[in-house]
Design a protein around this nucleic acid. Sequence first.
DNA 1: TCTGGGGTCCTAGGACCC
DNA 2: TCTGGGGTCCTAGGACCC
Length: 385
Amino acid sequence: MVIYQQEHSTPIETTDTRQFIFHVDLDAFFAAVEMREDPSLVGKPIMVGGDKDTKRGIVTTCNYEARKYGIHSGMSAKEAIERCPEIICVRRGHYDLYREVSDNILNILNSYTDHFRSASIDEAYLNLTDEVEKEHNGYPIPLAEEIKNEIFEEEKITCSIGIGPNTTIAKIATSRNKPNGITYVPKASIKRFLYPLPVKAISGIGTKSAESLKRIHGIENIGQIIEIGSEHEMIRKFGRLGSFFYRVVSGKGRTTIQPSSSFGVKSISKGRTFHGHMFDGEQIPIEMVLPKLIDSVHERLTKKSFRYKTVTLDVRFQDNFQNITRSRSFQAANDDKERIRTTVYELLAEINSDFNKAKIRKAAVRVSNLVKYDSMQKTITDYFS
DNA sequence: TCTGGGGTCCTAGGACCC
DNA sequence: TCTGGGGTCCTAGGACCC
């Protein structure tokens, strides 16, 4: 069974004391920032990402006006435009501004507790158990309102908040009441809340795992998992995933929110998709694009004062969408751009010979196995002392 | 759903070491 | 020449997330 569940990698806290985990999700974030900057967009359907002229690309984010037409993130720009011809496309989003607004909001959230972790540019988890118990008599809604109000006062951005006994339930709760909503799932309501939801509502259960659960076990909604009952039975049926299911539905599960450290970033990559017209006979444009990708990766690498040990070239073929990756690791970490360049071209040569120069749709350069400059210095110092 | 870009994490096989 | 078990690193592929 192809089931992937990242929650297993971290220790799961098994405390029985009541926990209040908040999940904060900014509503249609990129679109919301665009509307804040240009109020003439308010009330009109807009999407960030995608090109209205060529109808290429996909919708990265769209506002709630656009969602009335059934448009959602991930949808092809072509379909979005067909559904709503008057939609306004912000083709090149203002990503630096999104990052800045996000940082401001994450700082606000962090001021409520150190048990805080940003999960992405528009999402964060907080464990506010102490605050709710000591300052709010065990009732979390007013604190959620306070957080929402402060974010809106400071940044004019709305968010939705889900509150539950663990991170998984808090995140599902957020999604049930958007935009601008608060959803609280006390432990006693877990079953009633989760029962009718499809298994895909659980973050980490994607299309493939949902298909496997249906095909092998005939399971489509979370209620059917709950019915299995004991932890022992769940583990027998689903292996390690069973233990995760049991903890989620029994209100245990992960409640520890570890702050993401500055070493959090594991890899830096830059990719580019080529479109049909760029292919000209045997002329593969990839050689023309690779230097730009390498420059971009190297620039961010040095800006963050990282050094790398591994260089990877990812390639997606045009005809079958097959993804291929080739990588090479080095013993010593450094930030040499020339080493990235020569390695990338060696890897490209390997791919070309392995796959008979199949036409490439997408290429991405990645460095990983990152080492922070100062921690590397420490290692060297340790070595000689 | 005919498809962007930037990520994380997991797995499995093989090399290599003790 | 055949034989363990355990650990770690590397590589490639894949699922999943926003």
